[in-house]
Design a protein around this nucleic acid. Structure first.
Lengths: 236, 236
DNA sequence: GGCCGGCATTGACCCACATCAATTTGGATG
DNA sequence: CATCCAAATTGATGTGGGTCAATGCCGGCC
């Protein structure tokens, strides 16, 4: 089973109906100028579990995620894995001025993304500096998130890590206390994001459920039932 | 002793002799245009141990480091600290599109930096898009470094962390095997950067010295004596 | 509806690193 | 040169989370 599902095309994108646009790179442009992006964008779909690219591949393309969720990760030769982020619609992927990708990207759920040739995007950025401006703003947000994650990985306990993780998702997704929140990634992915093992993540979920900080309607959703206590558990 | 040493001035910078320029933001400009930066740059000196700014302060200024070393860090309410990076001449500090700094910055050694009003820099970026381009390139390098650090913090052993740290500095500084490398930060700073305790860092140094991977001429220098073995110890 | 297989949970045990506690070292100061 | 003190090292002991192993759960498939 190595064929990719509904990938293909080479077709040009129709950005007019894109829901991710206001959030994403293209949101930097006047509505009238969005067509300049569609002229260089190639839509691309990816089934859950498939890779968008691998660490070390030549970084000729960059992407804007429009639907679904991707995970970015780095691997060590012995298989240890660190997930550096979960990407959601609007996120830009492939920023990096090196020749090659420095991490791998894999679909968590079925995803859709817009692919751009790096060279084409660079050319458009010369013409439309507001694109570069938006990209810098996306990059600096990512940097702030990366720094928060370093604090989490370097200094927080397992319990604090899980609490911070859940609060972070809820905030990013704008999900209120008492509302069910989708958690599409596996326990293994969460563990590799938080620098823990599957077993430790599972135990932390169980404890927090027993303490009524959260509820677990099923394995792929959480409800924050006591936001104050959860913030307390996050340690900051 | 709360007065700041030789800080002061409000004077305009003379960028013509700036050694950090080729590396830094200003290196993006034609030599003829560098004066546009000096017109908005304010030089600033900082003694070792002094803070440039604190997490939460209004982020009105941004900086380019020209001399010395700064550490950036985040604190938890109970005092746990994670250093997210050590900055060297050429590095840009204060990137972030929020209202407030999201980390603190403190001088490790005596430092010199160029301060810019964020608003003034933003204005110049409109006029000179190559400034924004350079900033994006600096940001994406920092992002790649942050991702490498997440792998280190989430998945590496104490020994691997220290080995990676030393190799990273040697590479950044262009220091060859057998050459003494300055290590201006304290063991405590190294510990807070690597997500370990002082004692564990100290033990790891001792072990690697006894194994002849490194030599420790004094507490603030290291020599990599067996680069291959050290790369091996770094795990990737 | 029953079977299968992958993911998640739970339990028992272990170990790398944290913590607590002395020393030792070395740079600053008079 | 002696004194002081903060930083670093070294040693003894504790523990949070990793490892290994068994069991449970659920969704897909015949």
């Amino acid at each position: 089973m190595d064929r990719q599902a509904a990938n293909c095309c080479g077709a040009r994108a129709d950005c007019s109906g894109c829901e991710a646009r206001p959030l994403a790179l293209c949101g930097a442009l006047d509505p009238a100028d969005v067509m300049v992006m569609s002229s260089i964008a190639q839509p691309r779909k990816l089934a859950a579990g498939r890779q968008l690219f691998q660490e070390g591949d030549p970084a000729d393309d960059v992407f804007t995620l429009t639907e679904g969720m991707l995970k970015l990760y780095k691997l060590m030769p012995d298989g240890r894995r660190q997930i550096t982020g979960f990407m959601v619609p609007g996120d830009f992927i492939g920023l990096a001025y090196g020749q090659n990708y420095v991490y791998s990207a894999e679909a968590v759920t079925a995803t859709a993304a817009c692919r751009f040739k790096r060279s084409a995007l660079l050319a458009k950025m010369v013409e439309y500096p507001e694109l570069e401006h938006r990209l810098l703003s996306l990059a600096s947000n990512e940097l702030a998130a990366a720094q928060a994650q370093m604090l989490l990985l370097g200094r927080k306990s397992a319990r604090e890590r899980l609490a911070s993780f859940l609060l972070g998702i809820a905030e990013r997704r704008g999900i209120a206390e008492g509302e069910a929140m989708p958690l599409p990634m596996s326990r293994g992915d969460i563990a590799d994001f938080l620098g823990l093992t599957i077993e430790t993540v599972s135990r932390a979920f169980t404890i927090m459920r027993k303490e009524r900080l959260i509820a677990l309607p099923d394995k792929h959703s959480v409800t924050i039932t006591d936001g104050d206590a959860l913030r307390d558990a996050a340690g900051d």
